[in-house]
């Protein structure tokens, strides 16, 4: 009974993956699905916005190098909308420049940053711990 309640409490969380590279999408999706997360993938910020408006998203995994709009400006816009500003964000990037950029990320409330290549298992663990924090 207790176990059932707990499972109920940990209802499947939905993660939005914003990543233009199909391989990375597949890797993140596969590793998250294997841990019972629901995953939606967006190639670009505008698709991501549709998902955000339509569904309840619990966590966002965002790649900084995106077509059309760079990840940082997307993040900035996201943090300006009150409904979305509380969603935890994990940022990933292939090329990541200066400490200045990291400072900027901190400014947007992003603490979790994964430099590619990263271990998918580590990413999944971070997703788990961030979602646990939000539940608490």
């Amino acid at each position: 009974m207790e176990v059932a309640e707990k499972t109920w409490g940990l209802m499947k969380k939905k993660v939005l993956v914003i990543e233009d590279n199909a391989d990375h999408q597949a890797i993140i999706k596969s590793s998250l699905v294997s841990r019972n997360y629901l995953v939606v993938c967006a190639d670009n910020p505008s698709d991501a916005l549709h998902y955000l408006l339509d569904e309840k998203i619990d966590l966002i995994i965002l790649d900084l190098w995106l077509p059309e709009m760079d990840g940082l400006s997307f993040l900035k816009d996201l943090k300006n909308v009150p409904e979305f500003s509380e969603i935890p964000v994990i940022v990933t990037s292939g090329t990541f420049g200066s400490e200045y950029d990291i400072l900027k990320l901190n400014g947007y409330g992003v603490r979790e940053f994964f430099m590619k290549p990263y271990d998918p298992a580590e990413l999944v663990e971070t997703v788990g711990s961030l979602l646990k924090k939000t539940v608490d």
Partner: peptide, 16 residues
């Protein structure tokens, strides 16, 4: 970026 991207795919898939 262009080198890291397929390399991180390789490492990601291998990790999986």
């Amino acid at each position: 970026h262009d080198l890291r991207s397929p390399l991180s795919s390789i490492l990601g898939y291998a990790g999986l």
